[in-house]
Simulated assay, not measured.
Amino acid sequence: MSSNIKPLILHAHTTGPNPIKIAIALEKLKLPYEIKLWEFGDNAENGLKGAKFLAINENGRVPALEDPNSGVVSWESGAVMNYIRRKYDTENKLGPQGQSEQDIVDSEKWEYFLLTTLGPMAGQTNWFRHYNEVKNEDALNRYAAQTYRCYQVLEGQLKKTGGESILPGGYTAVDAHFEPWVRQHAYAQLSLDDYPNVSKWLKKYGETEEVKAAYKKIQDATS
C-alpha cells in the first residue's frame, strides 16, 4: 500500500469479537491504522453510549471506522469490511479466489451466515452464561444448542477444504469474520471436540501473521 495513506481509525473496545475481524482485514492489506478504545456506558467523553461516540455511530456499538483519506465513516462490521474491500483490496486478498457468480454468492452467504446467525447465537450464549442478572437456563440452553448447530454447519463446509479455509483456495474476509466468534467458544463454555475441522481451521488461521498482529494491536492499545 502507498505510504501516502493516512492511518485509518478503528473504534473498538477491549473485549468483543467484531473489531478484531476488521483489524485482521487491515493487517492483511497492510493498511496503516490506529485503535481508539471506548468503554461501556454513557460517559460523554469515552462511553459507547456517550455523546462523543454516538456522533460517530448512532447505534453505540463497535466497530466503527473513520477513513481520513476518503472522509467515509462506517459502522456495522459487515459494512466496514465491505468498504475496506471495495476501497483498498485492489489485489483481491480478502475476496473469493474464483470470480464466478457462484463464487461471489458463496462468499456473501457465509459472511451473512456469521453476521445473522452464528454471531448472534454465540453472543446470546455469552450473555446468558455470564451477564444476565436473572439466571435463565432455558434461554442459555436454547442459544448454546443453536450455536452448536452453527458449528455443525461450519464443520460441514470446512470438511470440504480439509479444515484449511472456509472458502476453497485460501483465507478470505469470511475467515476474518468467523475467527473471533469461534475463538470465543471457550469463554462461552462450548466445546469444539465434535468439530475437528473447525478446531483445525481455528488453530491454523490463528497462527497467521495477520490474525496475531490484529490481536496484538488491540491488546497493545489497552496498555
Rank of each mutant, 00 (worst) to 15 (best):
N136A: 12
Y187M: 11
T90Y: 00
L26N: 06
G16L: 05
A23E: 01
D67C: 06
R149D: 13
R85I: 14
H11E: 08
V80H: 07
A221M: 02
H185A: 11
K6T: 02
D193G: 07
G169P: 07
A213N: 08
W201H: 07
K21I: 03
W75I: 08
Y112W: 14
E209H: 00
E39K: 15
M81Y: 11
E66H: 12
V72L: 10
P68Y: 09
V62I: 15
S3C: 00
E91C: 01
G123H: 04
W38K: 05
N4H: 10
A64W: 10
I5N: 06
Q102W: 13
E34P: 03
K200I: 05
S77Q: 12
A12G: 09
M81V: 07
D42Q: 07
E207R: 02
E164V: 11
V182I: 13
N132Y: 12
L158Y: 06
M81N: 10
I5F: 08
A213V: 00
W38E: 02
K87Y: 04
T147Y: 04
E209A: 09
R129V: 00
P63M: 08
E179A: 06
S77N: 13
I104V: 14
W38N: 05
D89P: 07
R85W: 01
V182A: 03
W110E: 10
N92V: 00
S165K: 02
A186L: 12
G95F: 04
F40R: 12
P168M: 03
L65S: 12
A51F: 00
L115K: 05
L140Y: 14
A44V: 11
Q219Y: 02
L114P: 01
Q124G: 06
G50F: 05
D67M: 10
I84G: 09
G169A: 04
G119Q: 05
P168F: 04
I84A: 08
T161Y: 06
A145V: 00
F40M: 13
Q184E: 12
N92E: 06
V80T: 06
E133R: 12
S3T: 08
L140I: 07
L192H: 10
L140K: 05
K6G: 03
M81H: 10
N82Y: 10
P19Y: 08
R149Y: 11
P120I: 00
